[in-house]
Design a protein around this nucleic acid. Structure first.
Lengths: 202, 202
DNA sequence: CATCATACGAGACTACAGTTTCGAAACTAC
DNA sequence: GTAGTTTCGAAACTGTAGTCTCGTATGATG
């Protein structure tokens, strides 16, 4: 009998986990999201498919885990000004989304999410919430500095900033390099203006 | 020999086209994008699958065509003010994207587009360009009215406006109803502010 | 050391959905 | 009418996600 929650039986080989993650990333880069097959991942990792399905319920969860692994968007350090912070933030987001493999995976993931509430939940806690919190911190800094009179609508700002990058890259297909400064300038002007007249009808 | 571009052979049955479109829309509403199968579409439409593939190269193109069919985003009429125009525009976009079937289709389509340049091209000419042109017209109106001193960065505005809606609905999963007025106020403030100091370093 | 529970790689197997092929039918040109 | 071309629905083909079984390996328990 096992004691406590102590593991009984053969323990999992952590090298298998690493091999799966590495194989998914390698193959995403080579054949893209659409061309990725579970069998190919198993072969590339030198393992059996069963070892994959023992860890992940579906192919999508496997990819999600591999892409996400440690990919938290850290808040860029304080640059001393709102404009500087916004530019740095835009660069970080653009940097992450400019990787073609990650980009394809993300978009396909969004497609899946539209039809899978479980995946949507996980995506939210893993990506959306931390990023929103990071945005909030950045804006609070600006308030502390006195650059903004009051905290703006964080939900709206968050959707605006990330959404603009998404649309710029994947819908308009514009040059990633052009975006950060333009977006930061625009957002900075908007925030300053909105802070003065948050509710025009008041 | 055929004369001119005159059609030779058995002509297509236009009722088949209509039946496909109707079946796709009906099934999208019933089973969602993920649950949609070509076989089900064929059966629901009372036709063979070959008749579908003679018209569309892939399942995604079929859905794209069915969802898009006549779904051009018209520019909302002049409301007399920039804020009013922006609110109306946001409502139109939110309205289109709030339909769950269309939403799922769009997101999955974006996933496909990330890996299919041909589809990307078609998506751009069908959706992106007209919408950008609509945005431009709306902004020109504001300049003519004197609400804006000069025309803002249209590419950026376009990515910002549509991207915010996209992110608000499909990434943050916020309430569609809350968005239009908030976004319009924010964008209006941003545009007025940016028009005064388009290049802060000048 | 013996037992038990689990993980492992390999590969067969099932189910299902996208895509293609096929014979019959419909229509035009001559 | 006949030939040629294209569409039609039905059925076959192809490939992949996901499951299952097998024999083996690994570690904990006693």
């Amino acid at each position: 009998m096992e004691h406590n929650g102590q593991q009984v039986g053969r323990p999992r080989d952590s090298r298998v986990d690493e091999a799966i993650t590495a194989a998914v990333r390698k193959l995403l880069g080579e054949v893209g999201y659409a061309g990725l097959t579970v069998a190919a991942v198993a072969e590339c990792a030198g393992i059996g498919k069963a070892s994959i399905y023992r860890r992940y319920a579906t192919k999508h969860e496997m990819i999600f885990a591999a892409v996400v692994h440690g990919e938290v968007l850290e808040v860029p350090p304080d640059t001393g000004s709102l404009l500087g912070d916004l530019t740095a933030l835009a660069r970080v987001i653009v940097g992450h989304l400019s990787n073609p493999a990650a980009a394809g995976a993300l978009m396909s993931l969004l497609g899946e999410i539209a039809a899978d509430p479980t995946l949507a939940e996980r995506f939210t806690t893993t990506f959306v919430e931390p990023e929103r919190a990071g945005n909030a911190e950045l804006l609070e800094r600006a308030v502390r500095r006195g650059e903004l009179e009051r905290l703006p609508d964080i939900d709206l700002f968050h959707a605006m900033f990330g959404g603009t990058v998404l649309s710029w890259l994947f819908i308009s297909h514009h040059d990633p390099h052009d975006l950060p400064e333009r977006l930061a300038r625009f957002a900075c002007a908007a925030l300053r203006s909105a802070a003065h007249q948050p509710f025009p009808s008041d």
